[in-house]
Amino acid sequence: MRSLFSDAPRVTLTAIYWAFIFYLLLPLTLMMAMSFKDANFVAFPIGEWTLDWYAKVLQDKQFLEACLYSIMIAAATTLAATVLGVWIAMLIVAEGIKGQVIIFALACLPAVVPGMISAISLRIFISTIDMPTGTAAIILGHTVHAVPFVVVMALTRLRSMPGNLVDAARDLGADSFVAFLRVTLPYLGPALFGGMIFCVLLSIDDFVRTFFLGGYRPTLPMLIFAKVQGGMSPEINAMATLVLVVTAAVGLYAEYLTRRARTR
């Protein structure tokens, strides 16, 4: 016989699930709501609604410069991490190379080392080799962090690749390099694209490493951090909302593209 109690586990689970969703979305919703508030203070109640804060953000030279700087760093990071990641993944699946497990473990390590530890050690490292803080150091730090994600994504795809595709290319006259360029790389395509988008998002989002390795020029998270130090204002909410919407759109679009490529 069904009773209230036999339904209890299911009801509880459902309740916990919705409570979690609520808890997840509430801060974001609040942040977005405040960005439309026509007053200087971030607090309820919201009397008048306005888009002025957005207009202000979009005219803010500091903000636009920080955006551009972040995007540039993300692009350089993505390029470096993709080349390195694919190379390491190829090493791991290649025949006749010893210590592949160790290569894999080392390649994945930066993804699990706490950001703080990673940032401090990178800072110590660049000062040991007399590298100045700034753009190059930031790119270095972000790349180290992004490589594991490219490796894992490329590896998954490589392992699903029919072994004789490369053999077929070789058989038809391609040397190893041409076979890699014309067969392996296009096969990796969807996975690489996903991995690259991930690199971009990781880099744009990164605060700790940038903070330790950066110079005077602020990236986007650093700029927002600096502004928050100066006191909350709906302008910061508008800024964060913009970043949130753009990154979410990019992430979803990438997911959509890789899904489509995978089902093809």
Binding site: P162, N164, L165, D167, A168, A169, R170, D171, L172, G173, A174, D175, R182, V183, P186, Y187, G189
Partner: peptide, 20 residues
């Protein structure tokens, strides 16, 4: 002689057509 320098070609068991 490596495979790409030999004038023989293989039809593979599962065809190994380039999917892209």
């Amino acid at each position: 002689v490596p495979p790409n320098k030999r004038n023989v070609n293989i039809v593979f068991q599962d065809y190994a057509l380039f999917p892209h």
